[in-house]
Design a protein around this nucleic acid. Sequence first.
DNA 1: ACCTGAACACCGTTCAAGT
DNA 2: ACCTGAACACCGTTCAAGT
Lengths: 217, 217
Amino acid sequence: VTNSAARRRPGRPRPGSSTLSREAILTAALALVDKDGIEALTMRKLAARLHVDPMSIYHHVPNKAALISGLVRVVFAEMALPDPAAGAWQERVRAWARAYRDVAFAHPHLVLQIVTDAAAASEAAILISEPLYAALVDAGLDPAAVVDAAGTLVEFVHGYALGAAPSPPTAPTGDPMDERLAAMDPDQVPTMRRVHAAVPAGGGFEAGLDIIVRGIG
Amino acid sequence: VTNSAARRRPGRPRPGSSTLSREAILTAALALVDKDGIEALTMRKLAARLHVDPMSIYHHVPNKAALISGLVRVVFAEMALPDPAAGAWQERVRAWARAYRDVAFAHPHLVLQIVTDAAAASEAAILISEPLYAALVDAGLDPAAVVDAAGTLVEFVHGYALGAAPSPPTAPTGDPMDERLAAMDPDQVPTMRRVHAAVPAGGGFEAGLDIIVRGIG
DNA sequence: ACCTGAACACCGTTCAAGT
DNA sequence: ACCTGAACACCGTTCAAGT
C-alpha cells in the first residue's frame, strides 16, 4: 500500500504502482499511535512510515486535526455491539458499558480523543448508542429518564476510561494516591485515611455500574 | 512583577528591581490559558507576556509539563469546599459534586488537564475529597462502599466536565447531535430518534447526580 | 545566582514545481 | 491528478556567555 522506499520520485505514480489512500493513511496512523502514543503521531513520521513525502498526505486528509478525528471514527466503527436483546435490561446496560469501555481500552493512547470527540463524532458514535437506548426503554423509563440514564452512564465510562488511560505527556508522574495520602497530615484527611486503610482499592468499573444501574431502576 | 519591557538586559537583576518568580509565572500562564486556550500557552508567548527572555522561565520551572501541572495545582487549591457538615448526606454529596464541577468550569480551557492530572495531582486534590468521604461515611456506608461511591461520582464529574468543555483543537467541529441524528437512516436508530424527539435535551448534571445518589443509598 | 541569546532539533502547512 | 521539496513560521530545550 506504500510507494517504494528505495526510489521515491515526484510525479503522478505510474498506473499499477501502489498508491496512497486515505485508508492506508488512517491504518498507518492508528498503528503509529497504538505503538508510540499520540505525541508520536507527526505528519513527518507518518509519512516516513508510508515511505512518502510528508506533503503527499495532504492530498488525502485536509490537516492533522482531521486525521485524528478520522482515527476516532475508525475506532468507533470497531466497537463490538452486544447482542441487542439478550437478558434483563440491567445486564444489557452493563454489557453495553463494558463494550464501550473496551473501545477505549483497545487504543489506550487515543482515549483522550475518543472521549472528547465522542459527542461531535461520527455516525458510528450514534449508532453505537442505539442498543443502550433500547435497553433503557425496555426498562420502562420515560424518554426524559432514558436520556438522563444514558448520559450518566456515558459520562461515567468517559471518566473511568480517562482515569485508567496512560498519562498524557503533560501529566506529572505522580506518586500513587496511597503514598501521597500516607504522607499527609492525618488531621487534614481523617476520613480518607481511615477508609483507605480499610479498603485500599475499590471495585472499580463494575462497582460504578452497580451504583448507576441501581440508581436508574 | 515583570522586568521592564523597554530595556531588557542580560545579567542578574539589580536588587530592588522586580524579579521573576514561580508564582508570577504560574499567574501569567493561567491568565494566558484562560484567555486564549491551552494551545496558546507557549514558553515563548508566556515569556513575552512577562517581558522576559523565554529561557528565563526555566530557572523557576523545570519544563513545560511541570508548568502545566503547576497550573492544575493552583486551580485545585482554589476549590471552594462546601460547608462540611451541613444537611443530609445526600445534599452534602451533591454540593461537593457541584463544587468540584465548578473547579473545572472556572477554567474551561484547562479541563482536560484537570481531569487527567487529578489522580496523580497534588495534595490539594486529596484534601478536596475529604468532605466527600465524610458525607459518605455519614451515610452509613462501609469503607468499600465509600470508595466505590466516591470513585463513581468523581468519574461522572470528570466525564461531564470534559463533555461540557470547549472542544480541544483536534476535535472536529461537529454538527450538534440532533442534526446528525436527523440525517441518519431511521431504521438504524429507531429508539434514539423516538426518544430524542420526545426529549431533546435531558437534565444534565443534576439528573446524573440524582441517579448516582439514589444508587449509592 | 539569575537572565540572555544563539543554536539545535523538531513541528504543521503553503506553494510552486515536477510528471 | 497526484506527489515532491523547499520554505515559512513556529515549537521546547541545551548550552555557553553575560553581569
